[in-house]
């Protein structure tokens, strides 16, 4: 394929990914509202459409036609760039998600590293949005988010290094191939737990939702945003949540591997199970305090992830024989 054709092909899949993330956000927000309702013994949205099924569709239409309010003293350029830099990396990570055995947009030779590196840009987006808003709550929210984001990035990355060692490749398809008989969850249970918990922190979910702790920071970094730009933050949140859950499936649960059903179905079932788990946790557990959060990252998860690395090395030798 020529350069221009590859470029156009990439752009096409970019548009497809954006559509997927949009649809996912629409569905997941509704699902989350329904689940939270169930957990808190409410019914959730009920009025728009049967059982409130069209609620988020209506919300999106409403958000598109909302006024775009910007604080007078906000840094205009950074204020506009913030939501984009938050949402775009989350969508970019969809390029390497294997939705089924042959269904992967681009099987990069550094796919795993790409998945860890690209969503990292989100930290910059959050900081930028918080700083640009010229609002004390946003400012604190932005600072806290990026501090939390970078702190949990290290144990999370180290947990993935263990998987890379076992798989012997950074290519997503090779990681899946290596799990054809035994998923890495069996060889590396500690790594799975580490990945899952640090992922909660990376996507700002309770019990790690300090950046947007409603009771102390109003809405954190997106306090001053409205309309479509505000929607972009939610696109980022749910896109990143799905992508991270998908990668938990890829790295530890064997991706689409499974009996009887096609790979695509297995992949979605496993991923959505993890998404459900995060929602369940969110509506059950209270929130950590800011200093507890940092202590947990550096004094518990980082040492544990080093231990996990040693265990992964031993497991690797046992498997390799």
């Amino acid at each position: 394929m020529s350069g221009a054709a590859t470029f156009a092909w990439g752009a096409l899949w970019g548009a497809v990914s954006l559509t997927i993330v949009g649809a996912l956000t629409t569905v997941l927000v509704l699902v989350e509202r329904k689940i939270s309702g169930r957990i808190q013994m409410r019914v959730g949205p009920m009025h728009t459409g049967p059982h409130g099924l069209l609620q988020t569709v209506a919300d999106i239409v409403k958000l598109l036609f909302k006024e775009d309010v910007r604080p007078a003293r906000a840094d205009a350029m950074a204020f506009r760039l913030g939501p984009l830099l938050t949402a775009v990396p989350a969508v970019l990570s969809f390029a390497v998600i294997p939705f089924g055995a042959p269904l992967i947009m681009r099987d990069l030779n550094v796919g795993v590293l790409y998945f860890l590196a690209v969503p990292g840009v989100t930290a910059v987006g959050l900081l930028l949005a918080g700083w640009a808003s010229y609002d004390n709550y946003s400012f604190l929210g932005g600072l806290r988010s990026s501090a939390q984001f970078i702190s949990y990035e290290i144990p999370r990355t180290l947990a993935v290094v263990g998987v890379v060692m076992l798989a012997g490749s950074l290519r997503v398809s090779a990681v899946l191939e290596a799990q054809r008989t035994v998923p890495f969850l069996v060889l590396e249970p500690l790594g799975f737990v580490l990945y899952l918990v640090t992922t909660l922190a990376e996507v700002n979910r309770t019990p790690f939702d300090i950046p947007e702790a409603e009771s102390e920071l109003v809405a954190g970094y997106h306090t001053e945003y409205s309309g479509f730009r505000w929607a972009l933050f939610f696109l980022a949140e749910y896109g990143a949540l799905f992508a991270a859950s998908a990668f938990a499936t890829v790295l530890f649960l064997g991706g689409g591997n499974g009996p009887l059903l096609p790979a695509f179905v297995w992949f979605l079932v496993k991923t959505l199970a993890i998404v459900f788990l995060t929602m369940w946790i969110r509506w059950t557990l209270p929130r950590f305090r800011s200093d507890q959060l940092m202590r947990l990252a550096w004094k518990v998860f980082l040492p544990l992830s080093l231990v996990n690395l040693v265990l992964a090395g031993l497991a690797m030798q046992v498997v390799a024989g």
Partner: peptide, 25 residues
């Protein structure tokens, strides 16, 4: 090259949406 195209689309489409709805909101 593929990722450049990918990133361009993912970045340009939200910007395009914002610009279009500027006249409608």
């Amino acid at each position: 090259v593929f990722l450049l195209g990918f990133a361009l689309a993912v970045f340009a489409l939200p910007v395009f949406t914002i610009l279009v709805f500027r006249w409608l909101r």
